[in-house]
Design a protein around this nucleic acid. Structure first.
Lengths: 350, 350
DNA sequence: AGGCGGCATGGAAGCGGTTCCACGTGGGAG
DNA sequence: CTCCCACGTGGAACCGCTTCCATGCCGCCT
């Protein structure tokens, strides 16, 4: 009786018709399990006749190898994890995340590797996550949107689990491969664009400073201003969200009413900034020019359409996926980072 | 030699230190594998001493059960699929999807069930997906954003795989449980709100008509207009995206220049509509009132902030997750749909 | 005092694959 | 005409875990 109430049991009477096994395929094809297995896995050392027999048995029965059984012996899981170390909401809503998903799933489309979404909340959950990663439940991991204090980097570097970061990891642990856009150059180019457009009092709404993208874009902004002999005082932090961008713009206008150019480290923050600027009576781009960062869709539907820096997330994540697949295959390609260039998209806000 | 180049092999020399096995735990605890197993799985019929010994052995070794081995015998995978039958981009970018992910991961947070993202492209891919679902690779599935022509519904209904739809399935197959917001009522309430606000020439930008949400919201709009004795001619279709909303609004203004109220079946489409309205010199809400649907964040940051209908996606998906867990546990709860009410959020656009 | 039921325990049989190895067979080289 | 090798094949061992079942022990009832 006790056993009946344990959770996780198949409901009584629901006995699903068992999926066909290799044994059955072999029987139907008139060969041994070994031969059937070989035929299914690429057909080395299998005669054409046997191969054909197995193929048709597979088709007849609608056979799919049992993943668990296969994993048990090969120690491969045919699945990789997308690790998102963040308290939900913020990241998931960001078009950046959608792009990652899209790129990654594109890289995986041709394979039959599955994508496991690992959302690591802070605290205890992180422990659960790293343990999951270490213990061979996945063949590899792509890490996105990670912060300085994530234990992930060291754990992953130590674990030898194939992994690729989307966005530069904090510690440049050797062997932690990553793809990224050149955020520093992006920040510089964006700012230079504002300077070239005639702005002289240029502020930035920075991203989180515990993320490489936040720091690097800020550094680029600063460098451009210093090179031009302009002040780099007008800096306010945001967290990449529209709300934070609006709040930041408010503070910025209070502290520096004379601002005539704003580099927002994300388009979402730029959106927030735009609405505050409009609300407080500054015309864009006439009074204040605004440039964002990301160009992931939102930029075209703002008023006015947003001039911004390209962040090729989809492509980057696709590459990340491919690099990961190479690592998993043991093809010792270069572990160099793959950095994408900085590119301005001029629309109407600057 | 041939074997060496086969993909998927662990790189030579990368021999990861094997994760501890149950065998080792048992040895260290001085008990048999059977006892160790029992101790780990809830401790029925195991003495306190044995339990303690096993517990500490587990802690010392950092033992995690090998999922594949466990799956092989229990026929449970401890993972569920989130099925997204859509050509990427469109869905993934939608805040609706982010909400789903958030709700679902909340439902799963307490368990150690993993979430597998199954993005089913059209055509052949669908076949791959359904096969994957049928063949016991997951314990259950949550389906989101599905369309009329998806083969999914019948496949899932036939397969007896526990599953829950987020959004009403087309065919009301018995046993296909779902959660949804009352879209029909939502459309009606939204339209009634416009009527109450004085609009007399009310258009709608409908969603895709191969999705239940699209059809139902449209039906609600129509009903409200008929009840009020108003014309229900001004209907244009969109696909839930901002771009489509803008295009729709353009056509709407061309065909019905006298429109004074618009019900957009999604906030994103409302955003597109707003920008077109502004561009074509109609003031919102003075000249034209606009009401959207979803209230998932975008609505607050538009200009003017969008009056809209609540779509409690996060909560819905959390419930969907919980229902799925119940189904998997074999707790034969009611398979009735869970419908969330319709609720207007009044901001400034209507 | 003897028998009996209950309980913790270990042994062993699988779950469904992959892969090592030994075996038979046929063809080419010595 | 042997010998050997290469090749396709089937047998069998294992991957790590759960669970059935037999066993031995203890306490209790008659």
């Amino acid at each position: 009786m006790t056993a009946d109430v344990r959770p996780g049991r198949r409901a009584p009477g629901t006995a699903a018709p068992h999926a066909p096994t290799l044994e059955q395929v072999a029987a139907r094809a008139g060969v041994s399990r070994s031969t059937a297995s070989r035929a299914i896995n690429g057909g080395f050392k299998v005669s054409p006749e046997a191969q054909a027999a197995v193929d048709s048995a597979v088709a007849d029965l609608g056979y799919t190898p049992n993943r668990a059984a296969r994993t048990l012996v090969t120690r491969r899981t045919d699945s990789i994890a997308l690790v998102v170390p963040e308290p939900d909401e913020k990241v998931l809503t960001d078009p950046f995340f959608a792009g990652t998903l899209q790129g990654l799933s594109a890289a995986l489309a041709e394979t039959d590797i599955q994508l496991i979404l690992l959302i690591a909340r802070r605290g205890d959950e992180v422990h659960k996550t790293t343990r999951y990663l270490r213990n061979g439940h996945v063949d590899g991991a792509v890490v996105v949107s990670h912060h300085r204090d994530d234990a992930l980097e060291s754990v992953l570097a130590a674990s030898r689990l194939p992994c690729v970061f989307v966005g530069r990891p904090w510690s440049s642990q050797p062997g932690l491969q990553y793809v990224d856009v050149n955020n520093y150059l992006g920040g510089r180019r964006a700012t230079e664009h504002l300077i070239a457009a005639g702005c002289r009092r240029i502020a930035t709404i920075a991203g989180p400073l515990d993320m490489a993208a936040g720091v690097d874009r800020l550094a680029g902004w600063r460098q451009a201003l210093q090179d031009a002999g302009l002040s780099d005082e007008a800096m306010v932090r945001g967290d990449f969200t529209a709300t934070s961008g609006a709040a930041a713009m408010d503070r910025l206008l209070d502290a520096h009413p004379d601002v005539d150019g704003v580099f927002a480290a994300s388009d979402l923050m730029a959106v927030g900034a735009l609405s505050v600027l409009t609300a407080r009576g500054r015309a864009v781009p006439t009074d204040v020019k605004v440039i964002g960062f990301d160009d992931l869709g939102v930029a075209v539907s703002t008023a006015p359409p947003l001039t911004t820096m390209v962040n090729p997330v989809v492509e980057m994540s696709r590459v990340a996926g491919e690099l990961l697949l190479e690592q998993i295959a043991g093809l010792a390609g270069s572990t160099e980072p793959r950095i994408f260039g900085a590119q301005v998209v001029v629309r109407q806000s600057a």
